[in-house]
Simulated scan of single mutants.
Amino acid sequence: MGFRVDGILTATILPLLLTMILFLGPLVQLSLDCPWGFLDGLKVAFDPRFWTLCFTDMRWLRNQVIAPLTEELVFRACMLPMLVPCTSPGTAIFTCPLFFGIAHFHHVIEQLRFRQATVLSIFLSAAFQFSYTAVFGAYTAFLFIRTGHFLGPVLCHSFCNYIGFPAIFTALDHPQRSMIVLFYVLGVVLFFLLLYPMTDPSLYGDIPICYLLNKGSTDHHSLCL
């Protein structure tokens, strides 16, 4: 599910753009703190040596390529088509991320093994990560069902892995705090305003997962139409 050519251009651009709008505040914050100018950034982005370094860095490959591909394949492309007929799109969107969040608990074992922090702080961090990944998983599940494409969630996953959790406290201490906070708020407001229009299934062609649904389901009308 999710592997098709129909609507692939919009599936590549719109979900990622929507996610970037949500992260408008962090992106502005990064741009203000970045020592490079815009043209310098473009030069780096189009420099083959930069991408060679990236693709030879195992951590970069794991975070930006392997993890997004494998996790979206398992938890969205494979799991959602099995959950939706048994429950409903709405229920599946909030059930699937629970498995996704639990899958990240392996970090607890790693941190305990190497004694990277106290037991309490490790478990508090794990609880926070579970909550964050579950919310993110619900979002990408929503994208998958609305667009019917695997590619959009993968790109959004890779982008979010790169940006990380918004540095809200750092933003509040920033010299240009007012402007950054404004963009944080603006990004969230625009995200919710554009969430349904930018994921309108009519932009992505026929949505295969919607054919698995009972035509009488109310969730079918709200998410697939």
Rank of each mutant, 00 (worst) to 15 (best):
G148Q: 01
W51R: 02
G25C: 11
R59W: 11
M179T: 11
H107G: 00
D200C: 04
T10G: 02
V181M: 13
Q64E: 09
L14W: 05
G101T: 06
L193D: 01
P175Q: 07
P197V: 14
R177V: 04
A77P: 08
M198S: 03
L194F: 14
P81V: 05
G216V: 01
R177K: 15
G37H: 10
C96Y: 02
R4P: 10
C86D: 09
C78H: 12
L194T: 05
C160D: 04
S178K: 12
R62W: 11
M198D: 05
A141R: 01
A67K: 02
P97F: 00
L32S: 02
N214Y: 04
L22D: 08
V189I: 14
G2I: 00
C156M: 08
A171R: 01
T52A: 12
E71T: 13
H174L: 08
L151Q: 08
L80C: 05
D6Y: 05
L16A: 11
Q111D: 13
L203Q: 10
C78T: 15
I207T: 14
V135F: 15
T95I: 13
L112Y: 10
T52C: 11
F150G: 10
S217K: 10
R177P: 14
A67I: 12
C96L: 01
D219E: 06
S125L: 05
F23V: 06
L22F: 15
Y184L: 05
E71V: 06
P153R: 08
N214M: 01
L9W: 03
M58L: 15
H157W: 12
F114N: 15
W60Y: 15
I122H: 01
D206T: 09
P197K: 14
T56A: 07
